[in-house]
Design a protein around this nucleic acid. Structure first.
Lengths: 253, 253
DNA sequence: GGCGGCAATTGACCCGGATCAAGGCACGCC
DNA sequence: GGCGTGCCTTGATCCGGGTCAATTGCCGCC
């Protein structure tokens, strides 16, 4: 949970505002950076992006960004930290829908119902860019690159949602989960072989539709086979190739 | 490639062109009807919808509408018949992603990858409206109602994709599956208690991540409990209330 | 330092659903 | 008619992972 800038620069929110740009260019890791690049930063329409974005945070571990049933007004791009989304049925059982890393966007599944269908909970200290959705839609009408980017983000999330659906063994699920995290960290410029698991074993298990004990056993077995090194939540992938073999049916199919 | 007029005019495809409108108003069951209504049918911009839509079909049971890897150029609204989408991994194992009924849209998950990530296969004789996606995007920029409708369709599919994810018993899955079909038929004006299952037990099982034998056993048990009446693929829901109790954790959660 | 609470690990046992296998039924084809 | 071919159903067996339970380690707090 460290900023990539020297810690001394930021006094109070002590660490984690990740890789941010200046007022003109926003975050290098921002979920919308590719839209801006496609449209050209200089375009006057993009000045509107600066007006409709709002930096919010910090949220501490366990705090809600939004709750099931809240009216939908905005989507949130994670700037730093990690978020889980989840549904809680009326018996109180939790169902983890996904984990979101810096540069990723939460709230897209609320457009249609117009209310958030799930909770979003910070797993560690977390900051966001908040985009008013009505303003975003209006901007999308004027700037095709923004519209296209929204379509693509929605469509992309459709693809990932169908991944977990298959019936796969515990080993396949865990291997694919670790590799998925690795590639998402890598896409944002972080290490693809060493990273911190912000979520508990229970959250991982819930997300993968396994019992926490099973996740623990699989991780222990992977460690015994020298595929990974794991101590608490600090993870290193020692043999990504073999992990990819194990998880591959789940990774592309 | 058939037109959409009263069945008597068409010698060969004997039956199934559902509830259709005229040249001005398109299908009453059309996936875009609400967008048109919101914008007002008379708006000149909507004349463009008529230009970019193309009626295609019939496809016979087993024929592909598109295949994995085909370049993405259009989305397809089912006019009549039923479609399954599926992925096939390199070991040849099939994974059913969803079933699509008249009025529903396939192909949205191809926007981001720009190639279809799955196959679409007709389960019976099927007709479509084909919407060129580039043209659709361009139209969406000019007609906010069309853009909003696309956002909503994408977001809605995100919601349904997460339903199957949970770990639920075979009874819960089957009950929820039957009720989901019922409500989707009802939404398009068909009977919510009697309908035909266009897909095989194997397809249902695959979609629900069960074995075909398990689906067969659950249906037999439901019949013994007088919850349903089923003969081959003809289904009647005798006790939707009880089915709802059984499937409810999966239906909303 | 000692205590309490939570997360993680590990072991023992059990069950739901997968798998294997055997038939039944409806269809089209020769 | 006889036969093959899917599709469906039903029975018997097995196993992966869930559940229950005990233990350990870690960390914050009094």
């Amino acid at each position: 949970m460290q900023s990539k800038y020297p810690a001394g620069r930021l006094p109070d929110p002590p660490s984690p505002i990740a890789d941010d740009g200046d007022e003109t260019h926003f975050c290098g890791t921002c979920a919308f950076s590719s839209a801006c690049i496609a449209a050209g930063y200089h375009k006057p329409e993009l000045a509107a992006l600066q007006c409709l974005v709002e930096h919010v945070g910090p949220f501490r571990a366990g705090e809600h960004i939004f709750r099931t049933g809240d009216p939908f007004r905005a989507i949130f791009a994670v700037r730093s930290g990690t978020v889980k989304t989840r549904m809680v049925d009326k018996e109180g059982r939790e169902q983890v829908l996904g984990f979101y890393l810096p540069g990723e966007v939460i709230g897209l599944n609320a457009i249609y119902p117009e209310h958030f269908p799930c909770d979003a909970v910070a797993l560690d200290t977390t900051f966001f860019c908040r985009f008013s959705f009505p303003a975003m839609s209006a901007l999308a009408s004027r700037v095709p690159a923004v519209q296209q980017h929204l379509f693509r983000m929605l469509s992309k999330e459709l693809g990932t949602a169908s991944l977990l659906a298959g019936d796969h063994s515990a080993d396949e699920r865990v291997a694919a989960f670790l590799l998925d995290l690795a590639s998402r960290y890598a896409a944002r410029g972080f290490s693809a072989t060493r990273f911190h698991l912000s979520m508990s074993r229970g959250d991982i298990a819930n997300y993968l539709r396994l019992a926490a004990e099973t996740v623990s056993r699989v991780l222990s077995r992977f460690r015994a086979q020298k595929l990974i090194s794991i101590e608490g939540r600090e993870l290193e992938l020692l043999n990504p190739g073999r992990l990819r073999e194990i998880g591959q049916t789940l990774l592309r199919e």
